[in-house]
Amino acid sequence: MKTLMMTGAALALTASAAFAQDVIRMGTEGAYPPYNYIDDNGELAGFEIELGNELCARAELTCEWVSNDWDSIIPNLVSSNYDTIMAGMSITDERDEVIDFTQNYYPPTESAYVGASEEADFEGGVVAAQTATIQAAHVAEGGAALIEFATPEETVAAVRNGEADAVFADYDFLKPIVDASGGELMFVGDPVPLGGGIGMGLRESDTELKETFDTIIGEMKEDGTLNEMLVKWFGEEITTY
């Protein structure tokens, strides 16, 4: 009887889904607050989740969020396991060769170094960054020794436990961490402007969907709703459109 009910429920679900319009699956990392993270209830939350839901509502699309490891986030997009990436991914030329980006929904910002003391040697010492990010590429070009980690959390932990002299990441990711550290961590050196802002990544062949989201991001920039969201998640000093 129980199996029968389960099968019935499964059938009902598939049937209703078949009538629904196409579902856009949105990929994200879920480990980079305030952009995207997993909240106390185990649900995805953050600036990009709120923005993505608004974009889908305006485009009248049904969207479903998927969290995926950062390392395989682009391979899984081009393999069509989901349709978009909103994961704090900066628009760069290297990535643009493989996937397409909408116009940025987050202005080009600065990346910053955080160390455990004012004298932290971020120019010639050991600097932590997340694998396959613009920050990691920047450190690799400079004079400091780069130490890479799979998740943003580990890059900060490396500074706390002394493994690295400094961590190099997006300013807006580091800021809440520095604020909450009670003086243990601090910004060192000057911020470095990197990348072309953060955009939504899509497959190169998916031009129609790209146009749709591109237009709506443009609309949201104009009517000020995007600015409101930016201020809500990143505070008053964020650069707005």
């Binding site: 598939t14 629904a20 579902v23 393999s79 069509s80 349709d83 493989v98 497959r203 062949s205 998916d206």
Partner: peptide, 19 residues
């Protein structure tokens, strides 16, 4: 198509409309 792997919507596994 380039680096993209595109099959028709009915061939997706699971279907993108699936819960």
């Amino acid at each position: 198509q380039g680096s993209d792997f595109i099959v028709c919507a009915e061939a997706k596994l699971p279907l993108s409309t699936a819960p």
